[in-house]
Every structure is written in C-alpha cells, then in structure tokens.
Amino acid sequence: MRVLVCIKRVPAPGARINVTEDGLAVDTTNLGFTTSPHEECALEAGLQLVEEHGGSATALTLGPPEAEEQLRYAASLGVTDAALIPTDGTDWDPQRTARAIGHVIAELEAVGGEFDVILFGNESADSGGFQVGVRVARALGRPMITGAKGLTMDGTTARVQREIDGTQEVYELRLPAIIGVKEGINLPRYPTMKGRLASRKLGVQIHEAVGEPGGQRMVQLVSPPEQESRLVVLGAGPAAADKVVDLLAERGLL
C-alpha cells in the first residue's frame, strides 16, 4: 500500500500568536514550530496502515524551506520518502496551495505509482481554511471525506467513521481515496532513537511550486482585542465551596 500524508508546519498550538508590525505575518521570533495537530494524527494513521498492509509512507509539505524539519520529524516516526514544495514563506491562498500540491502529487505518482491513500489533516491549525484536501481530491478525481475519527482498509475500500453533531456516520470510499483526519483518531507515537538517526539520512525531494493564485487574498492579520479582566476571586481552598454553590444556585442549576 502506498500512502501519502500531507502535513503543514505551524507555530506550536497553545502559544500566544503575535502579529508582525505590518500585520502581514505571524511574528515568529519567540515561537516553536510543529506539525499541525490533525496532521500528526494523519501521520500516525498512515504509518499504522503501512504496518498492517505493507508498503510505504511518504510525507509531503508546502511551506518555507524550514518545513524540512517537519519532514524529518515524520521520517523519525517511520516515513521513508519526503517531498518539499518550498514557498517564500508568505501566506498562500487555499486554491494556490491545492494547485501546487495536486501538481506535485501527479509528479510523485508518475515516478512511483499511484498512492492508494492520501491523508490530510481536517484543517490546518493556523489558517483553518477547511478545503485544500477537498480541492486536491477534485483535481485528481478521487473520493474524499473529512473528519475521519476511524479508518480501516480492506484492499479496495476505505471505511471511514466520523461523528458529526452527535450522529456517527460510516462512509465507504473506493481506493484510491483521500481522507481528512481529525485529532482523536489515534494517539501519535513518539520518535525512536533509531528513527531519529534514520531521519538524518532522509533525502528530501524538492519540487517546484506550480500554481496560480486564487480569488482569496489575505490583507492583514489582526489580534483580537484583549478581553478586560472580569475576575472575581471567590476565595481559597474548600472554604470557598459555598460561594461556588451560591453562583450555581443563582443560575438555576441546582
């Protein structure tokens, strides 16, 4: 089974995100970077498929040259091939991103054969456009489902389970297929020492970014206004429990 996992380098979630003075980018001065959380789970799902069905997993990313770091991390987990589509680090709109990724997938498949499964994260943690995987699927003429919280394969079919608004849905997709994975589908593994060593030797293929800009353009990033503190400290320790219960009672929750 040939598996491709598309990942994105993003500032570590949880950090406070500041904007540069011109408002055109995130201020990366004090930020650590990581793989977007849904895509960490996509990597894990891809590696599990390879462990169960044989074959190999490839990682692909579009981003600044530094995104090579995330490809090497993927290799430390077990990915054996990696492709980087370097950008100038500016914000690419979703149509342009999808065009470039679709183009490179076609190049990779022309050389190494079709990918049975291509995995994306449900949405990127930073720009959150909810669309690149769907656009790539359309361009390649493959079925696509997002929000995957469960994934099994039987050789010709992918069975995807997801939960939306309290309803559990199961989809069956003919392979080759594209799937958007959501955090919670698995617990991603950590790199092994052997994996770390192997990742240093990984040959990262560089592919030229081909793709016209689309109809959405980022004008400026703005930090939402800081909310003014409204904190009332009720007290310290178990003695404050009664005051909490007063609040609950006021709201009709008892």
């Binding site: 909310q227 503190s229 409204r230 904190l231 009332v232 400290v233 009720l234 007290g235 310290a236 320790g237 178990p238 404050a240 429990a241 009664d242 005051k243 909490v244 219960v245 609040l247 609950l248 009672a249 008892l254």
Partner: peptide, 26 residues
Amino acid sequence: VTKADYAVIGDLHEIVPAITAAIRSR
C-alpha cells in the same frame, strides 16, 4: 484563572469534593 469570571485558588482535589458536598447538604 485570569480570564475566568470567578476563581477559587487551591487544590482541586480538595475543592471539587467540597462543592459536591455543599450542593448535597443544601
């Protein structure tokens, strides 16, 4: 805490059971 509307400072392992007990006694 700083973003919350209300806060109780202390160990949740003591405070949470105390809230449950206070609700029951009330």
